[in-house]
Design a protein around this nucleic acid. Sequence first.
DNA 1: CACTCTCTGTAACTAATGTTACTTGATTTG
DNA 2: CAAATCAAGTAACATTAGTTACAGAGAGTG
Lengths: 210, 210
Amino acid sequence: MIDELKLNYGHLFEDELLQEINNVGVFKEVPEGFKLIEIGSYIKSMPLLVSGAIKILREDSIGDDLILYFLERGDTCAMTLSCCVGQSKSEIRAIAETDAKLIMIPVEKMSEWMGKYKSWQNFILQSYHERMMELLEAIDTIAFLKMDERIFKYLKDKAMINSNNILNITHQDIAYDLHTSRVVVSRLLKTLENDGKIKLHRNSIKIISI
Amino acid sequence: MIDELKLNYGHLFEDELLQEINNVGVFKEVPEGFKLIEIGSYIKSMPLLVSGAIKILREDSIGDDLILYFLERGDTCAMTLSCCVGQSKSEIRAIAETDAKLIMIPVEKMSEWMGKYKSWQNFILQSYHERMMELLEAIDTIAFLKMDERIFKYLKDKAMINSNNILNITHQDIAYDLHTSRVVVSRLLKTLENDGKIKLHRNSIKIISI
DNA sequence: CACTCTCTGTAACTAATGTTACTTGATTTG
DNA sequence: CAAATCAAGTAACATTAGTTACAGAGAGTG
């Protein structure tokens, strides 16, 4: 584990802390689609993402989802931090967007290291900052963009995360993430195609204009 | 200042820290409507809210606002924390919702005390947690509620903040905060009145059903 | 191949929200 | 008091998004 740790977090943490992480952290490998955190569950460990991507979702009153943002390599889940601090249940759902590798840190260590390692303190504060910015961006997207723009942004974000401008995804999948209906997505995707921004195929979409 | 400080933060911080706050903090009293933070500005001090309320707003690409949440007595602005950590410009606007009293803490102290006082560390983390939850609630409101529900929620929140179920506010004011148009607000307020939930007057609205 | 299932396209309609334009009544100001 | 300004009501219309219903095109299976 220490190699992957050094690769992704070596520039952030001192050797002593890296060693501690190596000692208490549990390495975890999950497949695409794996549900890492469910709404209402208690959090016992915080994840450091080593490779892959994670999709963070919010749920409405009848159980339908809405995507908030993606986490990437080098990120941690601020909601987890937040829940540990508040001793509360998770307010979000986390699903592996791709196959992913994580290092799980027991929550007690999180606050122990806060006092002990300045670099850890900075990392935690920086993570909060980044997640806060992601939430603001999510608000901008939902509040200020029209559905066709939201769909196009979603496709571009997903292409970025997957490092691939061909997405294997159905219209229904998009509808779930954007909290709208499949028919609306199909309609708007078709106009995006007519505008030359994407190319549609069965089970896949190619992003043309970035 | 020490009295107001003890009253609002005495249960959170030890005497030594209270004394430090008293020494370096600058007491500030601002009138309703005072602009405390502007988007794009750099933050030099973080505010501890002693009395009153503060409205936090997000701006769209053409300069129109959208309310995110209110801060109350005992709160601090996590965006400020966030901006200090990230060394970045403010992403939000903060306006005094009522007359307000604040204690301004120089940003250097914020991180200095993080290492020095466990209670301060908890306070900062707890603040992040709370603001994160507020942002999630803002997302729920924008993404999952219809405009009439958003208006009614806004009125109830504002009544709560002002401890008064009669609000001195115009339809245009509401439209600005909710990022919609005056005509839409007037229309939906009228239906809320017909449903017996509120009573409309010129320049004021009375909340009937809570 | 016949059957089934999933995915996509599309029409037709409804609902929600936004826009423009005009009116009326209240309040302020010269 | 007359004029000007502001807040609110409302009609008419446009646009965006959501809903229902159905048809047809792959793709896999027995």
